[in-house]
Nucleic acid binder design. Sequence first.
DNA 1: TTTAGTATCATGTGATATCAAAAATATATA
DNA 2: TATATATTTTTGATATCACATGATACTAAA
Lengths: 229, 229
Amino acid sequence: MFIANTVTKVTRQTTEPLRDQILQRCRLMLMGGHIVPGQKLPLRPLAEEFETSLMPVRDALNRLVADGALEMSNSRTIRVPDMSDERLLELHEIRRSLEGLAAEYAAPLLSNAAISRLEQLIDDMETALRSGDYDTYISSHYSFHFTIYTAAGRPTLLGMIDVLWLQVGPWFRQGIERANSTDGKPNAGHKRIVAALRARDPVATRASVEHDVFANIEYIRKGEFPLAG
Amino acid sequence: MFIANTVTKVTRQTTEPLRDQILQRCRLMLMGGHIVPGQKLPLRPLAEEFETSLMPVRDALNRLVADGALEMSNSRTIRVPDMSDERLLELHEIRRSLEGLAAEYAAPLLSNAAISRLEQLIDDMETALRSGDYDTYISSHYSFHFTIYTAAGRPTLLGMIDVLWLQVGPWFRQGIERANSTDGKPNAGHKRIVAALRARDPVATRASVEHDVFANIEYIRKGEFPLAG
DNA sequence: TTTAGTATCATGTGATATCAAAAATATATA
DNA sequence: TATATATTTTTGATATCACATGATACTAAA
């Protein structure tokens, strides 16, 4: 329970390398906001918790540093980076661009069943928000967006969007927790997205997704959604 | 001289880790097209050429795999990925989106001196093409575009564009070599970009960069610029 | 109380050894 | 000759260890 309360042991399998198991766990912790900005992630304590040697932990963390989800200081300390307003703005500019692109491609390809699932996820999000279950909210929110982006059938684009979410993850958690107390309408944007998808309208889908992404920034600017640390 | 004829020994310094030195060399080899698609990159022979142990080579190659510049098969063999038409199209869709964005931001920020340097680079490219000096062409071409993108002042965006170029690099080399024999007008697009920058026109700059990026795809479609392996 | 110096500790990097799986090669069989 | 099988070699993943460097705590002098 040193790094985060979701760390569990990994086991050596023939199928999946330890490195990938550890990477997956770290990604979930970052996306879910269970590792906070500024927190150090030293190799040895982590290896101890995962009950492995340094090597697979080192590989996993190197990967996350490469993705920008973690940073290594000049003194080689690995930690979750602090988020500046500047960096957050840049990340959302890129998100708007790439997620808009993915949404446009996905619009004609999403099945009715998938769209119905999106509506279910909106309900899940609202329920989770009302009960303060942020883990479920974040999970459903991720599923909502990535159901759309996956349907675009662009694997490289999907991977790049995923990396962006990984970078924003830790601060999104903080932002959601604070915003929920004063403002509960993030799902308005999601409902517009679903409407555009029902119409199979690529242009409207792109526009609604771009707007939804940037809504976060608007909240930040107004001080209602202080993601910045 | 096993992997490529540009492999040189790395030396242990206090400043830069071996991993980073190896990574930089591999990046240059990929960008310059000195490692061909489908070629395997086993750790041990590479380590032997760099005169290091496996570890720094492993770290560098893992990073390149994470960036999509190399691929690891299900049997863990690392190689330069083959380029499908589908993947090439996707990479250029993303390039158009992100490089257009960077160019738009850069337009008001480029100094006259920088723009003059761009014109010099256009000359360099034409000279290099005429003499068949593709290494210089590729280097000048990279400098031309990244002079612009760097001026945008968006470090994350710049890094993502860089990764895209790394993925396209091996096939760009092939494409340029073939296209030069039949078609020598890639610089027309570059001149339009410079004109838009001289006018400090963000919209025109974005449009000209987007057009330039996609010109590659048009060549491919017409069969005049067969990047696809 | 402050500050410079020192010792100790923590950390990532890199080298080496080992292992299982995959690949390549050799051998056998039809 | 072609194909199946056995053997050897190669390969990446992981563990373990040594090392240099930076961080931290502590001491002593001002």
